[in-house]
Write a protein that binds this DNA or RNA. Structure first.
Length: 641
RNA sequence: GCUAGCGUAGCUCAAUGGCAGAGCAGCUGACUUGUAAUCAGCAGGUUGUGGGUUCAAAUCCCGCCGCUAGCUCCA
């Protein structure tokens, strides 16, 4: 007999080799019907797993946090089975679960089409209807390789050959389908009620560019159709908010073939938003002791040799060009310039910290396949700054940056974020530049700064760049999607390369501590995420047009213009639609352009000095005096909502 | 860069080897308008680009440019 301890502390005894499924059955209630898998001593196992010794056990049901992953993995297997039925001779790659679903990679004789996806889905439905059970078996490593040779699965053979000699290898079968897999799985295919195949794309075998490219099918699965529908709706909503469509519809920017891929033209309205953000950015930086600087777009090659960019960043830089026998490069980063500004005079410890900030436009060669709207471009303006300080000042400086970053994110409506502290990996010291002491000092300073601000974070071991540790903040937008946000990066490399130092109280020169930091990232990328975050409904303080007057007929055009002038006098961005159109048309136009406030003015308003307010949020709100409205607008602008 | 798909008027799309079309936007005129599209007329094109096949190419083939979904790489 064996003892089984359940999560609620209950102890039960069973005879040996009782399976998890039988325990679930015995427990009855929801477990009987909803059991999918089990967890013994922290390891996930199938319902058919026989218990052979005393153990803790929790039964995984559809409501358990681990359940979706199991379901999706099993659905991936069902998809693979369907593909093998429809494409005999298909070679299997890997088929893991991912954040919102799963994928499976195949080598097939011909490229897949949309129609194929529909056929595969249909075959999957058949398999689900057949309710085939998943069963596990184990083979020795060598037997497994032989088995895969017989099955003509070269990729699987490669995977198994990476497993240590003498290890056991587990397989799962559903009917005629066999797959190398760690498991666990749902008990049978009938337990996969709701799934959808989403897309096909190429993917290199094992993610290596030199390997053959397989065809990857993406899909997702849920326990309830309702949840699947909800997820598909979310995808649609994301599509609706796509900054590339909204950017065009709202006339914010364009990217023209004639100019070049990845190079952005900012139209007046997009430029307006950008300008508001940049002014806000500048003000905030001056307030916090930064000094704004400017640097050129090009510099002699020698500078980039000194900085090391030519050595390790060359493939991201535009080709050199010659001017009067000297060779120049377009800048991919701003740091060398800020360093030269720092070095333009002798710096004392009394001068530190020095904080140089710049909205610096840089150019990077990005491979054509990675360009994407505003989010991945070849020319962009970083909201860059470099802090030069002493080791003792580092912690306080980091705290200052975190405060600024938080303030910025809050101002733009980002409420949730994740913070990673990227530190050295253990036991690979040769990968990193700088001494042990400096690394420890910097990592400590970053960690303490986070603790002082009482911010939750996780440590990314081995995630640090070779030149120093960093804090990376991922923000979540209105749809819960993650975006790269502020980064704070300590650098031990450039101060060495440029011999950046300050004169200390001891009369000697000391190596400066340098911090690169950005709070928005790049204006292009930030605007792109902001468009999607707000879905184009920019809050009043950012809206390129805040108010539009809509005179009902020609008779009230003059009155509308008077009101417009008054609003403009208070710094508001107002327009007047005095076209020869009906009000309905003007309203529709204003609504599509997402103008936050539409003010309808006809005879009734003109007589009493009023406006009829129609907001983007609530629609028709009725009449109001211009002064009352001004008060409301000013409040809303200040609140940045 | 790689794999697959795509590129037609400013925008959204139709025409699949046989005269390149519609709606919206634009322009002109009429209507003087009250909370999401007033009516009529006009104009708009070397079908991304260069080559090829064909009596005939938006349509079939090849190169280049660009876009999309991913892969690889990143603000």
């Amino acid at each position: 007999m064996i003892k089984v301890v359940l999560p609620d502390g209950l102890e039960k005894t069973y005879r040996e080799r009782t399976t998890v499924g039988e325990v679930a059955e015995d427990l009855g209630g929801p477990f009987k019907k909803k059991a999918l898998a089990g967890k013994t001593n922290g390891t996930l196992v199938d319902l058919s797993f026989p218990l052979t010794r005393d153990t803790s056990l929790s039964v995984i049901t559809e409501d358990s946090p681990e359940a979706l992953e199991i379901l999706r993995h099993s659905t991936a297997h069902i998809m693979a089975q369907a593909v093998c039925r429809l494409f005999p001779g298909a070679k299997l790659g890997i088929g893991p679960t991912i954040e919102n679903g799963f994928y499976y990679d195949f080598h097939l004789e011909r490229p897949l089409t949309e129609e194929d996806l529909a056929n595969i889905e249909a075959e999957m439905r058949k398999i689900i209807k057949e309710d085939i059970s998943f069963s596990r078996k184990t083979l020795s490593r060598n037997e497994a390789i032989k088995k895969m040779e017989v099955e003509r699965q070269p990729y699987k053979m490669e995977l198994i050959s990476d497993i240590a000699e003498g290890e056991e290898v587990s397989f799962y079968t559903q009917g005629e389908f066999l797959d190398l897999c760690r498991g666990p799985h749902i008990p049978s295919s009938g337990r996969a009620p709701a799934f959808k195949l989403l897309s096909v794309a190429g993917a290199y075998w094992r993610g290596k560019e030199t390997n053959p490219m397989l065809q990857r099918i993406y899909g997702t699965a849920f326990f309830r159709q309702q949840e699947l529908d909800k997820y598909l709706k979310l995808l649609e909503e994301a599509k609706r908010r796509d900054h590339r469509h909204l950017g065009k519809e709202l006339d914010l920017y364009s990217i023209k073939d004639d100019v070049g891929a990845g190079l952005v033209l900012w139209h007046p309205k997009g430029a307006r938003i950008r300008n508001i953000i940049e002014r806000f950015w500048c003000d905030e930086h001056y307030k916090r002791g930064y000094q704004v600087v400017y640097s050129p777009h090009i510099a002699k090659s020698g500078l980039w040799h000194t900085s090391g960019h030519w050595g390790f960043y060359r493939e991201s830089m535009f080709s050199p060009f010659e001017v009067e026998t000297a060779e120049y490069l377009v800048k991919p980063m701003n740091c060398p310039f800020h360093i030269l500004i720092f070095k333009s005079e002798m710096r004392s410890y009394r001068d530190l910290p020095l904080r140089f900030a710049e909205l610096g436009t840089v150019y990077r060669y990005e491979r054509s396949g990675v360009l994407h709207g505003l989010l991945r471009v070849r020319g962009f303006t970083q909201d860059d700054a470099h802090i030069f300080c002493t080791p003792e000042q580092l912690e306080e400086e980091i705290v200052g940056v975190i405060d600024l970053a938080k303030y910025m994110l809050t101002s733009f409506g980002f409420k949730e974020y994740e913070i990673e502290l990227a530190v050295r990996g253990r036991g690979e010291k040769e990968k990193y530049i700088g001494t042990d002491e400096t690394w420890t000092m910097a990592e400590q300073a970053l960690r303490r700064a986070l603790e002082i601000k009482d911010l939750p974070y996780y440590v990314g071991e081995g995630e640090a760049k070779f030149y120093g540790p960093s804090i990376d903040i991922k923000v979540k937008d209105a749809l819960g999607r993650g975006w790269q946000g502020p980064t704070i990066q300590v650098d031990f490399n450039l101060p060495e390369r440029f011999d950046v130092h300050y004169r200390g109280p001891d009369g000697k020169d000391h190596r400066v501590v340098m911090v690169h930091r950005t709070v928005l990232g790049a204006m292009e990328r930030f605007l792109g995420t902001l468009i999607e975050h707000y879905g184009g409904d920019f809050p009043l303080w950012l809206a390129p047009v805040q108010v539009r007057l809509l005179p009902v007929s020609e008779a009230t055009n003059d009155y509308a213009h008077t009101v417009k002038k008054k609003l403009e006098g208070h710094g508001l961005r107002a327009e007047c639609d005095d076209t020869n159109q009906r009000v309905g048309y003007k309203i529709r136009q204003g609504t599509l352009e997402k103008v936050p406030y539409l003010l309808i003015v006809g005879g009734k308003e003109m007589e009493n000095g009023l406006v009829s307010v129609r907001t983007r949020k609530n629609g028709d709100e009725g009449q109001c005096t211009v002064d009352k409205l001004l008060e409301r607008l000013e409040r809303e602008i200040n609140e940045k909502v």
